[in-house]
């Protein structure tokens, strides 16, 4: 992994939710996913700003879905990991699990 590609906490959440949501990963779904899992309020702006930044680093890419099958249905802007994004996420998770190896932290909340 190239230097300077360190992932911030919220970036990790966004990337992980992309993995979790797969084909269904668009703005509102990502926002809800992170909010429900972390229990923290998450704004749509934070999601899009972070996705934008990740796209700049070429870790994610977007694609437009077909219009929804209703009258006037819109196309959604979906996001997915790029191979670099996948690698970067794996690297971070590996590092974290290596650091956690053998530790007992107990529950935070």
């Amino acid at each position: 992994m190239p230097k300077g590609q360190h992932l911030a906490e919220f970036e990790q959440y966004v990337l992980l939710s992309l993995v979790r949501l797969g084909e269904g990963a668009y703005g509102a779904a990502i926002r809800r996913e992170i909010e429900e899992r972390t229990g923290r309020p998450v704004s749509i702006g934070a999601v899009y700003a972070t996705l934008g930044r990740l796209a700049d680093k070429e870790l994610v890419e977007s694609w437009m879905s077909d219009p929804l099958p209703v009258r006037g249905g819109r196309s959604r802007k979906h996001f997915r990991l790029t191979p670099q994004g996948d690698g970067s996420l794996r690297h971070t998770v590996n590092m974290l699990s290596r650091m956690l190896d053998g530790l007992e932290l107990g529950d935070a909340e």
Partner: peptide, 13 residues
Amino acid sequence: QQVLRSLPWLLSR
């Protein structure tokens, strides 16, 4: 609330 919380993110972006 969504709008207000989004603003700092969007502006910094």
